[in-house]
Nucleic acid binder design. Structure first.
Lengths: 260, 260
DNA sequence: GATAATCAGATTGTCGACAAACTTACAATA
DNA sequence: TATTGTAAGTTTGTCGACAATCTGATTATC
């Protein structure tokens, strides 16, 4: 998951990482969005949320602005903040963007020094193993988490801070897509073999193949999320039946520790 | 420069665009960064800046967070805010990212309906004309502005809101690169023919060629900005001579109207 | 009975103030 | 003379409060 902070000199002390309150709040909110404590569409009042986080409204509002810039939150006028609900159009947009970026990432990883490349493969392999374990246990949550981390590893080794940040956001948005489209996590059995193939392609030094696989995977993801004709008519039906009537979700209690 | 808001129904009223104070401040700051009123490295005090903008520190701080998320500002601990200074590494990073994204954009524009494509070509042509006029007048500022708008048109017609936002930020960062590397605007005569070629490639329906040209242009830009060996040893020397000793730039007065 | 106007409640947007933290300069000591 | 310790000043980080605004419902009128 690292790879960007490789310029640490041995013997010298790395600068202390001091993080501001706003950073902490933003990180907390991001977590809450990723792990589903704040489902899409959730509307939150500033005062209540600030109280739960143990901070005042000032820093909270600053963190909100940051998450808004990342596209995770929307701020309707005079109604606090709401977790962004992804539309089918968003799903397509996000995955199209990922499909342009991630194949390039693979190509770039293959230009790394041999040692680094081995590290990447090891890290990716570890994530795939996590995915396999999760699949065996039918733990959709863990599968999703490993999925995110797999792609974060990719992003981290792309050699671009900016791109890592952007892809990081896109991945959280991907998670939001899942939450927006389904009420619960889905276990996709195809996911693991697909990612095994990614690693194999990289191991075989075949960037071209990696790109093709990645684009195919992302297109498949869009189909799965939008439950488009081909593979899942029944899924669509199930979804519609299981779906709650989408009432304006009331303040969903944040389950966060009191003392920040 | 538009293209994303094409879903406006005739006869229906478009929703009123009400913009919050934070939006206004953020936009003002972005402008100031783009037009050079706030050169890279500028350190600003919150109180002073808030006073100049005619708002209190609260909304200003919120806007700061947003610009920070965009990578335009950095917030050193307890020293207000500073306009980000781009390093050579940033220059390479930004242009590499653009080189990944913008060719794809051309390909996507070519999939547009014929009518839309004509509109794009017209808009791009207009920007090229602006660039030509600017070049004739040796107006580096105007040339740079038209350059930005040319690429913004591209971004706007890519059919992706997210990508338009990202590329928008990258373009502002590009401008910051110029300011970070040189003390003044530079007139690059090659710029205009390069962009004429872009339009021609699109007009000829040749996405492949467009991509190649774009990548070449961006690589050339990096060389120009970093004054790398090939084309500009003397430029490098000139630059070093002309350069001020990079003293911690004191509060550079914002030239903004009082009443917001 | 339906539409418009009014009113109360709640929540945001904004501001002013206080205290903690950091920087810088100066002085004291080894 | 160099280095450490001290102190003052400045600026941020955070909080609490007030007022404007919006929502939702109730009432009055046609």
């Amino acid at each position: 998951m690292s790879g960007l902070e490789g310029n640490r000199k041995v013997g010298r002390l790395a600068p202390v990482r001091r993080t501001s309150t706003v950073d902490l709040i933003a990180e907390r909110l991001r977590e809450a969005v990723v792990d589903g404590s704040l489902p899409p569409g959730t509307v939150l009042g500033e005062a209540e949320l600030a109280y739960q986080l143990g901070v005042s409204r000032g820093p909270l509002r600053e963190a909100m602005q940051r998450l808004t810039a990342e596209g995770l939150l929307v701020i309707p006028r005079r109604r606090g903040l709401a977790v962004k609900t992804m539309t089918p159009e968003d799903v397509r947009d996000i995955h199209w963007l990922r499909a342009t970026i991630e194949p390039e990432l693979g190509r770039r990883i293959l230009t790394l020094a041999a040692a680094d490349r081995r590290t990447v493969l090891a890290e990716l392999g570890a994530e795939v193993k996590r995915m396999q374990r999760a699949l065996r246990k039918d733990d959709a949550r863990a599968l999703g988490d490993a999925y995110l981390d797999f792609h974060r590893v990719l992003a981290g080794w792309g050699g671009s801070l900016r791109l890592a940040r952007m892809l990081g956001t896109l991945l959280i948005e991907t998670r939001l897509c899942t939450f927006s489209m389904f009420e619960h996590f889905e276990v996709h059995r195809d996911l693991v073999p697909e990612h095994v193939a990614f690693v194999e392609a990289l191991a075989a030094d075949d960037g071209e193949r990696f790109g093709i696989l990645m684009r195919a995977h992302l297109e498949a993801e869009v189909r799965r999320l939008l439950a488009e004709p081909e593979d899942a008519k029944e899924d669509e039906a199930d979804r519609l039946l299981a779906e709650t009537p989408d009432e304006p979700q009331p303040l969903d209690r944040l389950d966060l520790p009191e003392g920040l």
